[in-house]
């Protein structure tokens, strides 16, 4: 199963909000994937075990997986576009 990770500064509030939202959106679109909220401090470990990274902090370096803008899922601005990209990456 494909895995999406969402990371924010504490892994407690914002990343959880986005993870649950993304997981609901994917379910509605009948896309099968696991969406996990993680702590930014452990991102290097998680990045090796995921297919897409949804960032809620400004990314400071490059990663080997596609990065999507998590803010779109928090504000609704540009959300459809990010969701389409995500679904594409998960195909």
């Amino acid at each position: 199963m494909k895995r999406v990770i969402v990371a924010c500064g504490s892994g407690v509030a914002t990343s959880q909000m986005v993870a649950s939202k993304v997981s609901r959106l994917l379910r509605d679109k009948k896309v099968n994937a696991v969406v996990d909220a993680v702590d930014i401090k452990s991102i290097d470990t998680h990045i090796k075990q995921c297919d897409v990274y949804i960032a809620i902090t400004a990314p400071t370096k490059e990663y080997p997986v596609p990065i999507l803008n998590g803010i779109a899922f928090l504000t609704g601005i540009g959300m459809e576009k990010e969701l389409d990209k995500l679904i594409n990456y998960l195909k």
């Binding site: 914002t14 928090l74 504000t75």
Partner: peptide, 10 residues
């Protein structure tokens, strides 16, 4: 400071 929390919601 490190991870600001303002959201430009409408």
């Amino acid at each position: 400071k490190v991870f600001p929390t303002g959201l430009p919601t409408i």
